[in-house]
Structure formats: C-alpha cells, structure tokens
C-alpha cells in the first residue's frame, strides 16, 4: 500500500507495466511537442511578445509621452487628447493612476512601434475586446511592434490592481479603415 513501505524491498528493480510505460512515453512526447511549438511560433506565428525594453525614469517617460501627444493631437475627447500618429512611427502610451493616456487613432494594417510604461504603480494593459494583455512596470519602457488587424473602437482596461480607483482606469484606441489599398494588401501578406 501507499501508506506502508514497498512490499518489494528492492522496488527499483521491479519491471514497469506496459500501460504505465506507454503513458509515460506519450506524455513525454506531448511535452516535447508543446515545448517545440512555443519555439516554432516564433517562426510561424504573428503574435510574439517583444523583449525590447529600456530602463527609464518615470518623469522622463512622462515628458516623452507629452511631447508625442502635443505633436500629433487631432482632437480632444472628455479632456483627453486623441493622437493620430503617422503610420509606422513610434507611439507612446502612459499608464498612471487612473487612466491610459492619451487616446490613439491608428490605421488598420499599419505597424506601429508602441512604447508602454507606467509612471507610478504597476498596471495591466488589456486591450479589449481583442484581449491582448501585457504587464506594465514603472521604470521599464516596453517597445512592441503592433499591427491592428481590425477597425473599430477598442477599450484599454487596467487589469493589474492599482489601488482604489483601479476599476476606473480605462483608455481607448480607434482603428480606422486603411485609406490606401496597398496597406490592406500588406495586411493580407502579414497574416
């Protein structure tokens, strides 16, 4: 029994029953496959999180985002600037208590270098309803090359607890249909 010492003193020489051995081999191979598939996705998949990140003082990051917003603001919405950066450019998102700032307007099928960081506590960048979730740390500037594949209005929710106002921390991204036919083509190629 499992609560008594092994019946065979030399238990490590007992043969392994075939059903057990078969299962061990299947489970081991499945593990190897899953391990390999993560590596493979870096070559065949379009969704791999970038490792590009920089140390940055929160105040410095805040200044960068403000400068970016000033340059490309096209209108305001509820006191928050809506920023429309040129396709392919570096864009900045700031997480702070309790908003994602500013609002972005992107073009479908275009790639952007998105910089994300926080200036106070940790936040969770959660793009909805697309469901892309990335952790945001103060002091670390994460750079992700992002290509929206659908047009519409998207919400950014905070999904890392950040204090009493956590549930009021939201943001917004608008994605517009591509103006030129070629960007649609590029998108089709990218997938």
């Amino acid at each position: 029994m499992a609560v008594t010492p092994p019946a065979q003193r030399i238990w490590w020489n007992e043969p392994i029953e075939r059903v057990e051995l078969t299962w061990v081999i299947i489970a081991f191979l499945w593990g190897l496959f899953m391990f390999g598939f993560m590596i493979a996705w870096h070559f065949i998949g379009g969704q791999n999180l970038s490792r590009e990140a920089y140390r940055i003082a929160p105040s410095k990051y805040e200044a960068k985002v403000e400068e970016f917003a000033k340059k490309h603001t096209v209108r305001e919405e509820k006191g928050v600037p809506v920023v429309k950066p040129p396709a392919g450019s570096d864009i900045y998102i700031l997480g702070r208590l309790w908003q994602w700032w500013p609002i972005l307007e992107l073009e479908k099928g275009q790639s952007y270098r998105v910089h994300i960081s926080s200036i106070d506590w940790q936040h969770g960048f959660s793009l909805q309803p697309t469901n892309i979730n990335i952790q945001v740390h103060p002091g670390y500037e994460h750079v992700i090359t992002l290509t929206p594949t659908e047009a519409g209005e998207f919400g950014i929710v905070c999904n890392e607890f950040c204090g009493i106002g956590h549930h009021t921390m939201t943001g917004k991204i608008y994605v517009t249909e591509p103006k030129r036919a070629e960007s649609g083509q590029r998108l089709a190629d990218g997938r």
Partner: peptide, 22 residues
Amino acid sequence: TLGVARRHWDITFSDAELSFAH
C-alpha cells in the same frame, strides 16, 4: 477568455471617464 479583468470591482466601468462595455 472574454477579457474580464481579475481583481476588478466594476466591470461596467460606470465611474470611468472613458467607458467600455464587456
């Protein structure tokens, strides 16, 4: 799977400036 956040008091975001609807 539908995107609801953990550790979150209000998924209606009724107090948030920029609303979002699950």
